[in-house]
Design a protein around this nucleic acid. Structure first.
Lengths: 227, 227
DNA sequence: TACGCGTCTTGATTTCGATCAAACAACGCA
DNA sequence: TGCGTTGTTTGATCGAAATCAAGACGCGTA
């Protein structure tokens, strides 16, 4: 990661709005701001690798970070995807352990980094920080449970339609929106090969879903729920 | 859950050895002991259901608790399995949220329960408790990542052999041991139908694995790693 | 030791998604 | 505007595991 620096006005702003800092009291925010380091990560660059000693906590300010595990043959399985405002769950290792997976920039990203030991020090004095970490990590655990169950219970088109429904207004009206990242990244997040995602989209055409590039139009959200 | 009671000598002993309390200072342990309630749960009984407001933290003293999610048709997908000494991760919801999955006793179980609000109160005064919760939940997050990646990268026989290797001494010598629970439960934990587990075991016979009932004999751990 | 129930195994079939291969589209860049 | 790279779609094939349906085994009980 290059161009390390203290947070400027823009970065402070983004950081304050992130899910991480938003729930903290002013003293904890100040203490974290004090130790925050901002850096950007070019596309495809690794942030950390599975098995490395965990020494930093990372928060995404912009861009997307893909978290994945490797098998012996080098095949990759995505386990998480973090966007603006997200704290990278796998880097919350306060007890001096190791990273559980590899983190890579899916596109150019701006990150805030915090020395883990110092975070631990602050958390041991300021309960709001420790409790916020508990909440964030358990929310991520719940999300991981959802992925796991989805993988085992739903077909590719079902997973895709659930994703689309999660990302559009709940009012049952037709909508359009832009996918926040490339389809191959979405495929990984959903545990699919890119081809399978493509086929799922083409099947969903019969259910009122139209895709061109990153633009998605959903004709009938109610119908989509019944896929 | 019936037969609620204050912890007796036996339960205190088990609780003190659990991963949860083991890392805490004496004051936090005392405070938790003060609010602990012991109860047993008959086989197949639910401890909590997905979506219910989370008001209790649970720690398994004996037996096994299966955590799963349901799909609309009533099919179940196991997301976690907790045994003696484990804190049930899905019940660590300090911010008044809801349980992320359903917990059911896979066999008669003895549990310690803690009122979540009171745990939160203690954690906001005693940093060691809050930090221990962060560590426990993030370890479970890492385990969940591993399951997710395993599902996507490995075949049934591979997942089974990894499980076996995780549960036998690492010294490369032949061993025998007893499965801690029924095979159908193990199948669920590994994300397999019971039939698939059975077929995996029969395939692993060619690799020196012999199973009779819950008794497993591993002839050559090294060979197993290469499956 | 025999009985009966629940668990596990085996077989046959089917479905889903991975993989390989190739055509196609989009985008950045000269 | 044209080219090359990268990302996406489509087609064909293959393999893994779910499912359905019997049958065998193991275990506790009488």
């Amino acid at each position: 990661m290059n161009r390390l620096m203290k947070p400027g006005a823009r970065e402070r702003e983004t950081l304050l709005n992130s899910g991480f800092l938003a729930s903290l009291g002013v003293e904890s925010v100040a203490a974290l701001m004090e130790i925050a380091i901002i850096g950007n990560l070019p596309a495809r660059q690794m942030l950390f690798r599975e098995g490395e000693p965990a020494d930093m906590l990372h928060c995404v300010l912009s861009g997307y970070i893909r978290l994945y595990k490797l098998d012996p043959d080098g095949r990759e399985a995505d386990v998480s995807l973090y966007g603006p405002g997200d704290l990278i769950g796998a880097s919350v290792v306060l007890d001096g352990g190791r990273y559980a997976a590899t983190a890579q920039a899916a596109e150019p990203a701006l990150l805030a980094r915090f020395d883990l030991r110092r975070v631990r020090d602050i958390a041991s004095r300021r309960a709001d920080l420790a409790l916020a970490l508990v909440n964030i990590v358990s929310a991520q655990l719940a999300a991981s449970f959802t992925s796991l169950a989805d993988d085992r219970l739903h077909t590719a088109p079902q997973r895709v339609s659930r994703y689309l429904l999660d990302h559009c207004p709940a009012d049952g009206k037709a909508t359009s929106f832009r996918l926040p990242y490339q389809k191959s990244l979405l495929a990984g997040k959903l545990g699919l090969a890119p081809e399978a995602l493509s086929r799922a989209f083409s099947l969903l055409r019969n259910h009122g879903v139209h895709v061109r590039g990153r633009l998605v139009h959903i004709g009938d959200p109610e119908a989509l729920k019944r896929v």
